[in-house]
Computed example of a mutant assay.
Amino acid sequence: MNKMTSFNEAFWGTDYLSTSGFDTMVKRVLDGKSLCKDMEGYFKQRAKMEADYSKSLANISKSLKSRDNIGQLEASWNALRCETDVAMTIHADASKLFSQLAEETRKFIEEANSKRKPSEEKMKKCQQVKATNYNKMTSAKKLYNQRCKDSDIAKQNYSLLKTSVTITAKDLDKARNQAEKCAEQADKADQAYQESVKGLEDARIQWEQEMVTVCETFQAMEEERINFSRDVLWAATNVDSKIAVDIDECGERVRTKLESCHIKDDICAFIEKFRTGEARPMAIPYENYYGVVNESHYAQI
């Protein structure tokens, strides 16, 4: 079985006054609008979150102090500080990108509304005209059937009275006039009924033409919405991927510094830069006030 790909083939129905096909399409378009609104809200929240995180990183960076590059550990620490600033910029840029996606989505929703509303309103008018003409036709048909029935009864009554031997001329004329009057009313009802059928058919044709237009319009809107939504969601995931890649590169630069950090090297670097000497202070000898050397004093010490 071939799958249907056209709204114009799928949203009709045999019920003369049914609007289920149109209502189904309208609901689909409105559901799509709700999804776009959710997407817009998500992008706005992500933009705020990325901006807040960027500000937090900025505050952290300001609180960190630079250290003299005595060894690779200090160099790694300073690299982490610098990469924190880079990460701050990465998340600030991500915030701008999510804000742009939110704005694009908002504009798309507005444009979709401008396309949907006129088509929806015009279609509803056509439905109302068709329903009004249907009710007129139904009433005209009912009256026509009643007038025909009255005319048949009047004709039968006149025919019976003509065969009666006791009927007076006056009563016979009265019956004939009644039959003629009922036949005339039936003719008028017949004409009114035929005109109502024609009016209904004109309204149905107009409705059908408008329904075709609405099917084409709404399908085009759905195709545009799916394409747009797919593109912006793809763009959003690309932002996330870029954040991950860029942040990983920040981490990799810090890791590269840390790979050069060796305990002995940093110890040696510190010693080389701040060494104060290799000779240790000598023992201070006891000096007797009277100049007498007391060797046992050293023994005690």
Rank of each mutant, 00 (worst) to 15 (best):
S63V: 08
K142F: 06
E110A: 07
F7Q: 11
D240S: 06
L97D: 14
L80E: 11
G21T: 09
K44E: 03
K124I: 14
A283L: 14
E201V: 11
S260L: 10
S18L: 04
A87M: 15
T217L: 03
D187H: 14
A183P: 09
Q219V: 06
S241P: 02
L30P: 09
K107V: 02
N227V: 08
D266P: 13
S159M: 12
S6Y: 12
E104Q: 12
V232M: 01
V232D: 02
L57H: 01
L233E: 07
C82D: 15
K55L: 13
R253K: 15
E249R: 13
E180C: 07
A131V: 01
A10E: 07
S119F: 03
A175P: 01
M211Q: 13
E120M: 06
A112K: 04
R230T: 06
A94F: 04
E103S: 13
Y193G: 05
W12F: 08
E272R: 14
C82P: 10
K162S: 07
I153T: 03
H297T: 12
L35Q: 00
K62N: 09
V86S: 15
L172K: 14
K162Q: 06
S114I: 05
C215G: 11
K130C: 06
S159T: 12
K170G: 07
W12S: 09
N78C: 06
A112W: 04
S61A: 13
S196A: 10
M49F: 14
L80M: 09
K33R: 14
A279L: 11
A179W: 08
R28T: 04
V254P: 04
M49R: 04
R67E: 09
Q219R: 11
M211P: 00
A102Y: 03
L160H: 11
M137V: 03
F218A: 05
V129G: 08
F274I: 05
M39A: 07
Q209Y: 11
L35W: 08
E121N: 12
R204L: 06
V86R: 15
A220V: 13
S20E: 07
N145Y: 11
A79Q: 14
E295G: 09
I167P: 08
N135F: 05
E224N: 00
S6L: 13
K142E: 10
N294W: 03
N135W: 03
F43P: 01
K142V: 10
E201Q: 02
L200D: 00
N59M: 13
K44N: 06
E74Y: 05
F98Q: 08
S20K: 09
N8H: 15
S196K: 05
D231I: 09
I167A: 15
A102K: 02
T168R: 01
C148M: 05
Q146R: 02
E110D: 10
K136P: 01
K264Q: 11
